[in-house]
């Protein structure tokens, strides 16, 4: 849980920064398709690792429940993070 949540947040940040709309908001410029793809790949890898970590710690059943709940929290935090940028 302690490590899982930050990893999921970073993962969603990666996915988010792979999208041109959010690149404009957060970075102020649009990344090349190559870099966007890299961001996305990184994001998916991080999300997958957070899942693996949750399963390793709490077992398949409990880990999956934890992970699903945590995923929602992480995604909301990242959405608010991009919103904060777009409002500035």
């Amino acid at each position: 849980m302690v490590l899982c949540l930050p990893i999921a947040i970073v993962g969603f940040m990666g996915l988010c920064l792979g999208m041109s709309r959010h690149q404009r908001d957060v970075l102020g410029r649009v990344l090349s398709p190559m870099r966007s793809a890299l961001c996305k790949a990184f994001g998916w890898t991080a999300l997958a690792s957070s899942f693996a970590l949750a399963i390793a710690r709490d077992g398949a059943a409990m880990g999956a429940v934890y992970w699903a709940g945590m995923l929602s929290l992480a995604a909301v935090l990242v959405a608010l993070w991009t919103t904060w940028f777009s409002r500035r």
Binding site: C16, A75, A79, L80, T83
Partner: peptide
Amino acid sequence: FADFFTMRF
């Protein structure tokens, strides 16, 4: 998916 993280106030 395109609006996944989108929240405009």
